[in-house]
Simulated assay, not measured.
Amino acid sequence: MALILPCLTRAAMRLMFAMIFGTGIASASDIRFVTETYPPFNYLENGVIKGSSMEQVRLIAEGTDISYSVEIMPWARALATAEHEPDVCVFTAVHNAERDQKFKWIEPLLKSRTILVRKAGSQVAPRTLEEAKAFVIGTQRGDFTHDLLRNNNFPKIDLATDLVLSLKKLMSGRIDLVPISEKYYDKLKRDGEQIESVLTLAEDTYSIACNRGVPDITIAHMQAVLDNLIADGTQRRIFAAYGVMAEEGKTN
């Protein structure tokens, strides 16, 4: 169960965890965080990794007093690295049934809907998910949306190495629809991308997914820091800074 903490100093949090677990936080692991280019959550700008999820990961790592590094790579590789290599965590990962037992989870970095989008002006206009199955849907290899489409028996799935390539295919007419986060869709629209929302595919919790070998004490401490970021309004302020709208009635 996640610990929901009041606003605490780092020293107070360290003392609380020493009392709860009977040990100091010095036993916490060094963590290698891996991610992909997926603005506004995580992306590279002038050689610096930024984004609403990156800011939270940085604060979580600093609040947990762990040594850490962050690396951007293709999503399928990032997910596989976190699953198979010790002391690795991947973000921003959707927590779904297929991944649940493969990782330890810190969440939520955000909650969002996944929607199907089309090129603006396209005649592709399914009114239901069943109707959408008649069209070619593009997504990236290893992404949760691939599992989602397969589990819902979508027959025409086009796989790309990353989401940017899928969107390029969409704009060139090579595919009909692409599933993306609603918050990413909002950013693309603000940036002037000529796309339109068609249907809601799913509602999702986006998280940090850690290798099963990461110690429970480290997971618990990172979760407690994230809980505190949510409780004191820091997460919402980060969302505002990156143009990520929090959902009505949600704490994140």
Results as ranks from 00 to 15, higher is better:
L167E: 12
I106W: 05
K187T: 02
K119M: 13
F154N: 06
E55V: 02
I72H: 08
D186C: 03
K187Y: 12
A76F: 05
Q101V: 02
R174F: 08
T92L: 08
K187W: 11
D158T: 04
M73R: 14
D147S: 15
Y185C: 06
A61K: 04
D162L: 01
G192S: 06
L110E: 05
G192Y: 11
P126Y: 00
T64P: 02
T200K: 11
A120D: 10
D186W: 08
V136K: 10
Y68P: 02
L199P: 15
T92F: 01
E98C: 02
V178G: 03
L163E: 14
A76R: 15
E85M: 09
M73K: 15
A61D: 07
A125S: 14
V88G: 02
A125Y: 01
N152T: 08
L201K: 06
P155R: 08
N151T: 04
G121T: 09
G138Q: 11
E98W: 07
I157L: 08
V136E: 12
P126N: 07
T145I: 04
Q101H: 13
E107R: 14
V94R: 11
N153H: 14
V124E: 09
M54K: 11
K104M: 09
N151Y: 04
L109Y: 04
A134E: 14
D147Q: 11
R150P: 03
K111W: 01
R77C: 01
L109C: 04
G138I: 08
A125L: 12
